[in-house]
Design a protein around this nucleic acid. Structure first.
Lengths: 151, 151
DNA sequence: GAACAACATTTGTTGGTACAAATGTAATGC
DNA sequence: GCATTACATTTGTACCAACAAATGTTGTTC
């Protein structure tokens, strides 16, 4: 059972608005934890994967810090320190930009690309597993309602 | 605009399953951030509020750490250190249990209760504001779909 | 060209999450 | 009663989030 009441061990009757928010937070935690466990096998974290994905999307062009920050799921994370961690694992390369020495150029390394290649098929599997009980319509409805909540 | 593409600055077409997950994470961040800003006025954080709520729900009976942990939205948070923070603000009281000295008894203070009283009406307002565009049916549907995702 | 503002990143600090290990206490079996 | 086990909390470490301040660089204005 994964009802709110059993997660929070409380039988209190809540207004629908609180129930929605608590469901949102609990489900988000649940999914985030699944991802964390998944990424751990690759000795990486979710935010670090996010950075690598963005860098791969650059298709060879270097990205600077602010661009990465903008595109991350967590806008307020400190991309600089995430890059530090990725550097230690040789998954990215960092150079100061010659034309504008305020900027730094960040590139994904071949090792980084290889790691992503090994992660992606398994991640796809995890994702379809997560949503295996859902019809296409339910997924669309859920996405729309979540989007509406951000308005 | 709060569409995923504008949040993540990417026009990539994603499979529905990835889209749902990203929408979930983005919406959860969005809401969590709103709450963080809200609680900040009261010099408290979301998890700390969560602990205070649980303690108030005890209606005068002390709670021990493991009980609090169990009932929290974030199960893996370190309730012990949250209690430390609350102690510094005199919002809770901590005593070692006389019958079983392994346990500690945690109680919310009058100051803590007063703080909750001042927070609650404003929080209710924030919550109904968050969901003001939703019909009752939409809220139910959203809660159900979120719950289904945890199965 | 010196002062100033704008930009890009780095650093520092506080708070929380996640997990493992250590500590102290109580109950159980022999 | 002593060792073992289970229980409840504390402590330690690594990582991320949130935010403010500092640093270094470039562009602009007078």
């Amino acid at each position: 059972m994964s009802k709110l009441s059993s997660i929070l061990k409380s039988d209190a009757v809540l207004p629908s608005s609180k129930e929605v928010v608590l469901n949102l937070l609990c489900t988000s935690n649940y999914i985030a934890e699944k991802y964390a466990v998944f990424f751990k096998q690759f000795e990486i974290t979710g935010p670090q994967y996010n950075v690598l994905r963005i860098l791969r999307g650059q298709k060879g062009n270097p990205a600077n810090l602010s661009t990465i920050q903008e595109r991350m799921v967590h806008k307020n994370s400190n991309a600089g320190r995430l890059i530090d961690k990725l550097l230690l694992k040789d998954l990215v390369e960092r150079n100061t930009c010659k034309e504008n020495r305020r900027k730094i150029e960040i590139l994904i390394t071949q090792k980084g690309l290889d790691l992503l290649s090994s992660i992606d098929p398994e991640l796809d599997e995890l994702e379809s597993e997560n949503l295996k009980g859902f019809t296409k319509e339910e997924m669309t409805t859920l996405s729309e309602l979540l989007e509406k909540l951000r308005e």
